[in-house]
Design a protein around this nucleic acid. Structure first.
Lengths: 130, 130
DNA sequence: CATTCAGTTGAGCAATTATTCAATCATATT
DNA sequence: AATATGATTGAATAATTGCTCAACTGAATG
């Protein structure tokens, strides 16, 4: 079945006309919507969301957001019951996604939430009881 | 190794005092941050983010956001190259996560983005070039 | 310069996820 | 009632993910 036959029946149902013309017009509208929806930032956005979609990583970002300052890796460890290695993997993925930044200070590494991370968390908080 | 020994060395490095007292005070601060970070909405938030962290589902929500109106399942199909079944699974997960709402109209089902979905997408857009 | 410590990296494995196929439900039509 | 259509559901499977362990890097310190 062509992908548009069902759409054709739908439009015939909803609207009065059922001509091919109206179908292809609606299809063009949908393509336009799709193009506007799927820009080049789609992959990066899904990457960012994937980075946040895990309890360990989400907690790290939340902790940094609440702390409002940079924290040392050694300060996360007591709060997350996973291995140091898991924490390091999590921090790398968050860094790649643009959610945290890293800074060296002697033998310690300090991480901070980015403006983007804060913006997303604030949106989540603000929309919770909409 | 106790989880706090490294923290103790860190604090001794950063600050002047290195007493047990200062360590346990910082630990208490961190626990407080952790509590503030990890409220009951943590699971729901991770669920919401997981629902968005997939190209098919993200595109559906984006399309609904851009469209600004409810769309029929049959209108997604031409834009997403996955099976109808996959689209239906995606829509169910998005509904469970509170990102879209469903409405029956005859034999057609129409979906709409929720206010929360729109808020998150707007935050992503607005924070892109921070 | 050998050792220690903080953190990272990669391999491996268990658990989860994304998709499809087939069957089913629900609504409309004949 | 029987059939057709839109959509959903569940099972099966391939792909991805999250974690740990062990080995490693880089920086400080004896």
């Amino acid at each position: 079945m062509s992908s548009t036959e069902r759409l054709q029946r739908y439009l015939a149902d909803e609207r009065d006309g059922c001509g091919d013309e109206e179908v292809s017009q609606r299809l063009a509208e949908l393509e336009e919507i799709d193009t506007a929806a799927g820009g080049p930032s789609l992959d990066a956005d899904v990457g960012l969301l994937s980075a946040l979609a895990n309890e360990t990583r989400y907690k790290i970002v939340r902790i940094l957001h609440v702390a409002g300052e940079e924290l040392c890796v050694c300060e996360f460890a007591p709060l997350l019951n996973v291995s140091d290695s898991a924490i390091s993997h999590a921090l790398s993925q968050l860094t790649d996604a643009g959610l945290v930044t890293r800074r060296k200070e002697g033998k310690w590494r300090k991480y901070r939430a980015t403006a983007r991370a804060n913006a997303v968390l604030i949106a989540l908080d603000g929309s919770r009881e909409l």
